[in-house]
């Protein structure tokens, strides 16, 4: 039984969660047999009905986001090995990292100018 302890707790949490869901369902509109009318289901946009289905394909514009991701990702790729040798190399490693980050920062500034930081 002691070995079953954590399992029993997990099972109790599982049962409690199911009971909670059933309780909410029973107390909610569906459990009381209340049907949702068409007008109650329609989305709100000020009182009119939408004329087309909401399933809509649009351009998510990932490309500028990819630019920003690359800038930060490359930084981390270089920083892991650098942190291993930083203590041994001392000031030179520090200066090298400063130069590297300055170049990357130019990339970020370029992305900022290209409005890559705005999701649109």
């Amino acid at each position: 039984m002691i070995a079953l302890g954590p399992l029993a707790v997990a099972f109790a949490v599982f049962v409690a969660a199911i009971a909670g869901v059933l309780l909410l369902w029973w107390r909610g509109d569906r459990g009381r047999g209340r049907h949702q009318a068409v007008s109650e289901r329609s989305p709100f946009a000020g009182g009119r009905l939408p004329s087309v289905h909401a399933w809509n394909r649009y351009h998510a514009r990932y490309y500028p986001m990819a630019l920003v991701f690359l800038a930060f990702d490359m930084e981390m790729v270089f920083m892991y090995p650098w942190s291993v040798v930083f203590v041994r190399e001392g000031l030179i490693a520090m200066v090298e990292m400063g130069m590297f980050i300055a170049i990357l920062l130019l990339g970020v500034l370029y992305a900022w100018r290209e409005r890559a930081l705005e999701w649109a």
Binding site: A45, G46, G47, R48, P50, S51, V52, A54
Partner: peptide, 9 residues
């Protein structure tokens, strides 16, 4: 996507 907002937006 056509969308009409109002008259009670």
């Amino acid at each position: 996507l056509p969308l009409e907002i109002g008259p009670f937006y």
